[in-house]
Design a protein around this nucleic acid. Structure first.
Lengths: 238, 238
DNA sequence: AACCTTTACTTTGGATCCAAAGAACAATAA
DNA sequence: TTATTGTTCTTTGGATCCAAAGTAAAGGTT
């Protein structure tokens, strides 16, 4: 049974259910019954119903035509699409930011992220804990860019897309064998961050957008999402 | 009081509340209380709570830090962002479709939309009823493209963005003075549709994407969204 | 034996009740 | 008079109960 919130002793049903699904306790395609989940989480049916609504909007659950919800299943194509959506939206954010101009504050934030990333790379190798650090760093970098666009509309669109299970940072595999690969990915990601920052600073909107879109594929390229192997994206074929 | 569903006599609380908000009965920034809305709609608090959840996810409502929900208000920049998000996502869909290749069925659907649009234009002027026809036509055209991408991920991302009040087709103003302007817009939109179709047919992904992104701005250019005037979008400034 | 009908059960949606957390207001002390 | 604390009231979140719709199963009829 999941732990309850510290401050008010209440259980976050949405988070718990999301976790159960991403852990595979409720498998993709499986029918989800209110009562069953309610008993599983030791709450009444009401919060579960609320949670179903939210999780449906997030795309994790799907309403069956007749009755009830099923756990949505994602194909490899869905994963690719989600990555491309992320790229398109973050690319948009980057372009807007470049055109608008980077403020002192955002500039400092981004520089800080980059220098901390630099420090991580300088060690020459990774330990498990570093992956957490990088995840935070990475998140900060992206969040700073999206946040600086001013409007919540783009931010929300990205956030909703990120609710999909494979897009979250949780799914990163942390076994020793993957550390080398992860180090390579991190170097690449860092280099891409540097380029994005450069484009942003120079006010090169189109370039910033293009770089950000390419950067979105990094999870797929290095296979840390969903345990998928290399997944290509078709280029413009005339 | 809103009308109830024909088949089961139940009230669609979400739709009703959405309508109330878009009609301005609940103004942007206004605090929304469960009990108040429940009495207004003649239902108990429970369905209202469900609706709040959904409408929050859609972006229409915003959770206040402390308690309750307020009707979200959108700035002109938000409108621009929503348009650009739509452009980015539909552009993505168009690129994917072009690269994947247009099937017989989709080709027929798109051609049908275009020829019906052609017929509408040939009349040389519009009457009010034509605007409805065009709206349906336009929706079909876009839906065909997005639907043909195969994955629901992109479709859902677009659908969520379209929940924003100003992005919906309902907000089109239909007074006589606007008909001329609307005719001009329709000609432009039709021309853009033709170009997109051409690019799709030829498998020119990058071009299809670019055209679709430009097409997204048409509502702003012709000021039929939210009654706003011309709103420019900055181009890549070095 | 197959198909239709009726009945019982499962499951969801809505209403009401209860508890707890915030907010507003008042009273008291500095 | 102002600030702080205690009390009351508003409002939300959760639990339980009830009704309705859909599904499955059983029994009867052709």
């Amino acid at each position: 049974m999941p732990e309850k919130s510290e401050k008010n002793g209440r259980l976050n049903v949405i988070a718990s259910l999301r976790k159960l699904i991403s852990e595979g306790v409720y498998a993709p395609g499986e029918r989800l019954k209110e009562l069953h989940v309610a008993e599983r989480l030791q709450v009444s049916r009401m919060p579960v119903r609320l949670a179903f609504r939210t999780l449906e909007q997030e795309g994790l659950l799907q309403k069956t035509g007749t009755r009830g919800y099923v756990v949505r299943q994602f194909s490899e194509e869905d994963v690719l699409c989600a990555v491309e959506v992320r790229g398109a939206l973050e690319g948009l954010a980057a372009r807007r930011l470049a055109e608008k101009g980077v403020t002192e504050e955002v500039d400092a934030q981004l520089r800080d992220c980059l220098s901390r990333g630099e420090a991580l790379l300088d060690k020459g190798h990774l330990i498990k804990a570093d992956i957490e650090i990088w995840a935070t760093l990475n998140q900060e970098f992206h969040r700073a860019i999206v946040g600086a666009t001013g409007s919540r509309v783009i931010h929300d669109a990205i956030a909703r897309n990120d609710h999909l299970p494979f897009a979250s940072a949780d799914s990163i595999v942390i076994d020793d064998a993957a550390l080398d690969r992860e180090y390579g990915k991190l170097r690449m990601a860092h280099a891409q961050h540097q380029l994005v920052f450069q484009a942003l600073s120079r006010g090169e909107g189109a370039r910033a957008e293009m770089l950000m879109r390419e950067h979105a594929y990094i999870g797929l390229r290095y296979g840390t999402l969903f345990g998928l192997g290399e997944v290509g994206h078709a280029t413009d074929a005339k």
